[in-house]
Design a protein around this nucleic acid. Sequence first.
DNA 1: TCACATCTGTTAGTGTCTAACACATGGGGC
DNA 2: GCCCCATGTGTTAGACACTAACAGATGTGA
Lengths: 173, 173
Amino acid sequence: MRLFAERGFDTTTVADVAAAAEVSSMTVFRYFPTKEDLVLADDHDPIIVDHIRAQPTDQPMIQRIGTALLESTSAQSPDERAMLLARLRIGLSVPALRSRMWDGQYQTQRYIAEALADEGIDEFELWVAAGACISAATAAIVRWAERGGTEDLAELMAVALRIVIHSSDRSPS
Amino acid sequence: MRLFAERGFDTTTVADVAAAAEVSSMTVFRYFPTKEDLVLADDHDPIIVDHIRAQPTDQPMIQRIGTALLESTSAQSPDERAMLLARLRIGLSVPALRSRMWDGQYQTQRYIAEALADEGIDEFELWVAAGACISAATAAIVRWAERGGTEDLAELMAVALRIVIHSSDRSPS
DNA sequence: TCACATCTGTTAGTGTCTAACACATGGGGC
DNA sequence: GCCCCATGTGTTAGACACTAACAGATGTGA
């Protein structure tokens, strides 16, 4: 991350990273399947799923997902926030990384839909609701990163989720 | 597209495509910046923007975007549908292409937000609304492709958009 | 101390993509 | 008809990401 931030992602080779880590290039590829994974490796999905499962089941589906996303973001430590910002700073400016980030959110969407399956909700409706919430959360995160992390991420995300969810008065299940 | 469908994307080299087109590899890269662009090249964004601009301005923003997406999909010819399905068939199964597809939607989101700027709406709210609609449209398109294109895409998209928009009673601007 | 699994390095190779230069083709002005 | 020039294309050389197969090192348990 230090090398990428200093010299740029595209202009830093895997060999450079390997040398800085005092290992061979092969060793890097053994732990990170691609160069992109050096930046994108994170384990936030299980945390989100935990928060999803902890939501009261008497709420509308879209509300449960949105609240879970908001909670799992609010629970981040300052260190995690700093790491997230560093990742986004590099990731949003490099096309290859940006694409991979969106795909990471697609994976998150799949995890969420999987965690909430078997509740009798229509599969497609669940998928759409998860997509809408993730889209809103992403909008907040991107905006936050573009402003250099100076704004309140949790508040931004709450605003974004409110736009998508607004006064949903539909019943659960 | 034929080669990729027959022999797989990863197992078909650019040299193979170039040979089939009876040109050199260099010529391929001159017209398509990357191998992925051989599959992903499309020009749907301007059409969406046209439909966006054609919406009555007395509707809520999210409604205008959603309707425009639905219209520009409904207006597709059978040939365009077939091409879309072929692209999705290959694209969804190849990680590198899937990632790039998501990034294409990010670009679409930017076009939409740009087309609707200067209307006095809060920039962030506009961005979130566009993201939610695109997310819904994408859910419909992916579902449609996963079912082999047998379902009614316009109807799927209408259902998805209704979930995101539902009975929004907020005023425009 | 030995057998074994795990980790790491080396080598050789494939494939994407770039840069620089040379060649061919075809149309417009003299 | 001939040259000039723009455009399109091919060739070559090369950087870099990534893979596969093999060999050496290291540490752990019996």
